[in-house]
C-alpha cells in the first residue's frame, strides 16, 4: 500500500500535470486507505494548484493550463469533500465577484474566481454584465469581505467607481475591500476610484486578497 505522503504527492502531481481523468482514482485510493480528507485537499490538491500558480508566474503555464489544472482539482474535490468531518468546515472569507454592467467578457473573471476558490475563499459569482446595485446588495446579504470587479472594456470602467460610491453612501465602505482588474484597468485607475487593490493576473489576485485579509494563505475547507 502507498504511504500517505506518496498519495498526497500523486494528488498534487495530478493537478500540476493536468491529469483530470486520473485524479479521481487517486483520491478514491487515498480515502480507501483511511487518510483524512482535509489533508488530501490542502496538502494534495490545493498544493498542486499552488504549484500550478507558481508555474504560471514563471510563464511556463498560461490560461489553458490554469483551467485544465483547476478541472483536475475540482474532480479531486468531488471525491474528497463528502468525506470531510462536519467540524472541519469553518468560516471562510467571502468574496463577491462579477463583470461590471455593460460588459459580457468573463474569461478573466472566471480565472480569478477559480484561483481564489482554490486558495480557500468562499466565492459568490454574479456572472457577467452585472447590475452595479447587485454587487452592493449581494455583499450586504452575505456580509462579504471582498468585492472583486472586472471588465475588458474601458467604456464600463466608470461603473466600478459607482459601486464604491454606493458602498460609501450605505456606510459599508469600511466593511468590505474592493479590488478591480481587467485589460484596460491600471493601478492608477484603481487608486483614483479609491479601490483597495488591483491585480494584473488571477494568480496575483490571490496574493492581493490574502494581503488585504491579513492571511498568509488560506486553505480550502469544505
Amino acid at each position: 500500500m502507498k504511504s500517505k505522503e506518496e498519495l498526497l504527492k500523486e494528488l498534487s502531481d495530478c493537478v500540476v500535470e493536468m491529469k483530470d481523468n486520473l485524479v479521481g482514482g487517486v483520491a478514491k485510493e487515498y480515502i480507501e486507505a483511511g487518510y483524512p480528507a482535509l489533508d488530501g485537499i490542502t496538502e494534495g490538491l490545493v498544493d498542486g494548484m499552488q504549484r500550478t500558480a507558481d508555474l504560471y508566474e514563471q510563464e511556463e503555464y498560461f490560461i489553458p493550463e490554469l483551467l485544465i489544472c483547476s478541472d483536475a482539482m475540482y474532480n479531486g474535490l468531488d471525491v474528497l469533500r463528502p468525506h470531510l468531518e462536519k467540524t472541519e468546515s469553518r468560516e471562510k472569507h467571502k468574496v463577491v465577484i462579477g463583470v461590471v454592467e455593460g460588459d459580457t467578457h468573463d474569461i478573466g473573471k472566471n480565472l480569478v474566481r477559480i484561483m481564489l476558490e482554490a486558495a480557500g475563499y468562499e466565492m459568490h459569482d454574479l456572472g457577467r454584465d452585472v447590475a452595479l446595485r447587485s454587487f452592493v446588495d449581494k455583499a450586504k446579504e452575505i456580509k462579504a469581505d471582498v468585492i472583486a470587479m472586472s471588465t475588458l472594456m474601458s467604456t464600463t470602467m466608470p461603473g466600478m467607481s459607482q459601486v464604491i460610491e454606493m458602498l460609501i453612501a450605505e456606510g459599508l465602505r469600511d466593511k468590505v475591500k474592493v479590488i478591480v482588474g481587467g485589460a484596460p484597468i491600471s493601478p492608477t485607475f484603481a487608486q483614483k476610484i479609491g479601490a483597495d487593490g488591483y491585480s494584473a493576473t488571477a494568480v496575483e489576485a490571490v496574493k492581493l486578497v490574502n494581503r488585504l485579509m491579513g492571511v498568509e494563505s488560506e486553505k480550502i475547507g469544505a
Binding site: 489553458p64 467578457h105 474569461i107
Partner: peptide, 18 residues
C-alpha cells in the same frame, strides 16, 4: 453572432489558444 454572449465560447477560445 455575438461571441461573448454564447454559452461555452470560453472553452472554444481556450482550446483555440493551442
Amino acid at each position: 453572432i455575438e461571441l461573448s454572449h454564447l454559452e461555452g465560447f470560453d472553452n472554444v477560445f481556450v482550446k483555440a489558444m493551442e
